[in-house]
Computed example of a mutant assay.
Amino acid sequence: MNIETALKEAMTVEGAIGVALADYESGMALGTLGGGRELDLEIAAAGNTEVVRAKMRALSLLGINDTIEDILITLGTQYHLIRPVTSGRSSLFLYLALDRSRANLALARHVLKRVESGLDV
């Protein structure tokens, strides 16, 4: 699926606030959907590139030869879910922000995994 379709599918998750596809090498968002005044997805995507880079560095320093499925950041009112894209360009990740009071985290992880596996970039 293309970027637009992938972002739309991710936004079908109950409680979705916004979603982005970003490149953690450049910090640039390739696409965003949702967000608004509540969440600036361009800034969020750029900021989360540091999270992904730090985790990649940590794995390397620890000599762990494995891949990251997802990274979860829990806030008081939100979940932020980061899922690296494993096919195609390896420096991409999906970022999904959710309203914690409305979201089902297990379902969100499942949907984001399906979106990631079907993404054609």
Rank of each mutant, 00 (worst) to 15 (best):
residue 1 M to C: 10
residue 1 M to L: 12
residue 2 N to G: 13
residue 2 N to F: 07
residue 3 I to L: 10
residue 3 I to A: 02
residue 4 E to Y: 04
residue 6 A to R: 01
residue 6 A to F: 04
residue 7 L to Q: 08
residue 7 L to A: 07
residue 8 K to M: 09
residue 8 K to S: 14
residue 11 M to D: 13
residue 11 M to W: 03
residue 14 E to F: 00
residue 14 E to Q: 04
residue 15 G to Y: 09
residue 15 G to S: 06
residue 16 A to N: 06
residue 17 I to N: 03
residue 18 G to L: 04
residue 20 A to K: 00
residue 21 L to K: 00
residue 21 L to V: 11
residue 22 A to H: 08
residue 23 D to W: 01
residue 23 D to M: 02
residue 23 D to L: 03
residue 24 Y to E: 11
residue 25 E to T: 08
residue 26 S to R: 05
residue 27 G to R: 03
residue 27 G to C: 09
residue 27 G to E: 12
residue 29 A to T: 11
residue 30 L to D: 07
residue 30 L to W: 12
residue 30 L to V: 08
residue 31 G to S: 04
residue 31 G to T: 07
residue 32 T to C: 13
residue 34 G to D: 10
residue 34 G to Q: 06
residue 35 G to W: 00
residue 36 G to Q: 00
residue 37 R to W: 11
residue 37 R to P: 14
residue 39 L to I: 12
residue 40 D to W: 03
residue 42 E to R: 00
residue 44 A to N: 02
residue 45 A to G: 06
residue 46 A to W: 06
residue 46 A to F: 08
residue 46 A to T: 11
residue 47 G to H: 01
residue 48 N to H: 10
residue 48 N to M: 08
residue 49 T to E: 13
residue 49 T to A: 15
residue 50 E to N: 01
residue 50 E to Y: 02
residue 51 V to Q: 03
residue 53 R to V: 11
residue 53 R to D: 14
residue 54 A to L: 13
residue 54 A to K: 00
residue 54 A to T: 14
residue 56 M to I: 10
residue 58 A to E: 15
residue 60 S to K: 06
residue 60 S to R: 03
residue 60 S to Y: 05
residue 61 L to V: 10
residue 62 L to N: 00
residue 64 I to E: 11
residue 64 I to K: 00
residue 65 N to E: 15
residue 65 N to T: 10
residue 65 N to P: 03
residue 65 N to I: 06
residue 68 I to P: 10
residue 68 I to V: 15
residue 68 I to Q: 01
residue 70 D to Q: 01
residue 70 D to Y: 03
residue 71 I to Y: 01
residue 71 I to K: 00
residue 72 L to W: 05
residue 73 I to E: 13
residue 74 T to D: 11
residue 74 T to C: 04
residue 74 T to M: 05
residue 74 T to K: 06
residue 74 T to L: 07
residue 75 L to F: 11
residue 75 L to V: 03
residue 76 G to M: 10
residue 76 G to L: 11
residue 78 Q to Y: 11
residue 78 Q to E: 15
residue 78 Q to M: 14
residue 79 Y to P: 13
residue 79 Y to S: 03
residue 80 H to F: 15
residue 81 L to G: 08
residue 83 R to E: 14
residue 84 P to K: 00
residue 85 V to R: 02
residue 87 S to G: 10
residue 88 G to Q: 08
residue 89 R to W: 10
residue 89 R to F: 13
residue 90 S to N: 08
residue 90 S to G: 09
residue 90 S to A: 10
residue 92 L to I: 05
residue 93 F to N: 04
residue 94 L to A: 07
residue 94 L to H: 01
residue 94 L to Y: 10
residue 95 Y to S: 14
residue 95 Y to A: 11
residue 95 Y to W: 13
residue 96 L to Y: 11
residue 96 L to G: 13
residue 96 L to W: 12
residue 98 L to P: 11
residue 100 R to W: 12
residue 101 S to R: 05
residue 102 R to N: 14
residue 102 R to V: 12
residue 102 R to K: 15
residue 103 A to R: 01
residue 103 A to K: 03
residue 104 N to D: 15
residue 105 L to V: 09
residue 106 A to F: 04
residue 106 A to H: 06
residue 107 L to G: 05
residue 108 A to H: 05
residue 109 R to H: 04
residue 110 H to G: 09
residue 111 V to W: 05
residue 111 V to Q: 03
residue 113 K to A: 15
residue 113 K to V: 07
residue 116 E to A: 15
residue 116 E to S: 13
residue 117 S to C: 06
residue 117 S to W: 06
residue 117 S to Q: 14
residue 118 G to A: 10
residue 118 G to L: 06
residue 118 G to E: 14
residue 118 G to V: 02
residue 118 G to Y: 07
residue 118 G to F: 06
residue 121 V to M: 14
